[in-house]
């Protein structure tokens, strides 16, 4: 009777044991990689919109303040999207024949809102409030990425809970103080005026991080010590900041 198993069967058996053992790990890692990839999170993936609105053009090139359109960002949980009336404040006078702006004019005439596609979404069980972050001087780009550089708006950060907690657990690494602003609220928007006046190269390293929307965690002991002083000065309640009920209520 011939041999039922050839010698190479040993190799197959060993490899399948190894692969079989590793399979759950590989599947787990693949799932983790997928869920963090831009394919899933949509980070830095520009989203098509009914009108190709450019933040770079309006906010950086023309120097229009964020709050001209996002009027409620300082006093409400929601930053607010501008009504068509806000667009028409200028576009009833300039670019009045542009075919790109046809949906704006149509919306204004028909009294129907423009249906923008939502770039940043949160699950319903998370409550995020813009006004408190602005009131503590947290810059827009810190969460939204380099909005002043975006031709078509994209998501700057994945908004995963872990990401929120980085700052909520150690706010001293992220808090910032602009000596030229008379209020914390004002320093948020002064960064963009400074960008207009001095350009990126004329700004401090911290401000450059801010306008580029980069991760700006400060690790140096000196920075952390300064940050801790700011935490105290701003009255940030670190003990409660990472409590479940701060965001989930």
């Amino acid at each position: 009777m011939a041999q039922l198993f050839k010698p190479y069967a040993n190799v197959i058996a060993r490899t399948s044991i190894v692969i079989g053992g590793m399979l759950p790990v590989i599947v787990g890692l693949a799932a983790a990689a997928y869920s963090r990839s831009p394919y899933n999170t949509k980070v830095e993936v520009p989203l098509n919109q009914p009108i190709p609105f450019s933040h770079q053009h309006h906010a950086y090139e023309l120097g229009i303040d964020c709050r001209y359109c996002h009027t409620s960002v300082e006093k409400s949980g929601y930053a607010g999207l501008p009504p068509t009336e806000t667009c028409m404040s200028c576009h009833s006078q300039i670019w009045t024949n542009s075919p790109l702006l046809e949906p704006v004019r149509k919306s204004y005439e028909d009294n129907t809102p423009i249906q923008w596609n939502k770039v940043n979404t949160l699950p319903s069980f998370v409550n995020f409030n813009h006004s408190i972050h602005i009131a503590r001087g947290i810059n827009c780009n810190q969460c939204h990425g380099p909005v002043n550089d975006m031709q078509i708006t994209f998501k700057g950060h994945p908004f995963m809970m872990q990401w929120c907690l980085q700052c909520h657990r150690a706010p001293e690494k992220y808090l910032y103080k602009d000596p030229d602003s008379h209020s914390l609220r004002e320093q948020v928007f002064n960064v963009y005026w400074k960008l207009q006046e001095k350009g990126v190269s004329g700004m401090t390293p911290r401000e450059q991080h801010l306008v580029k929307g980069e991760e700006q965690e400060e690790d140096g002991a000196k920075d952390v010590a300064e940050g801790k002083a700011l935490v105290k000065q701003y009255g940030v309640k670190v003990q409660q900041l990472a409590d479940c009920s701060v965001c989930h209520y």
Binding site: L62, G63, I64, D65, R67, Y68, C90, Q93, I94
Partner: peptide
């Protein structure tokens, strides 16, 4: 925030919109 796009920072009517909208 709200006035400079048209009226300019000095209020002289030379804001960005008036500079861009040449034929206002």
């Amino acid at each position: 925030i709200y006035c400079t796009p048209c009226h300019g920072r000095l209020g002289d009517g030379q804001g960005m919109i008036s500079k861009r909208g040449l034929a206002l």
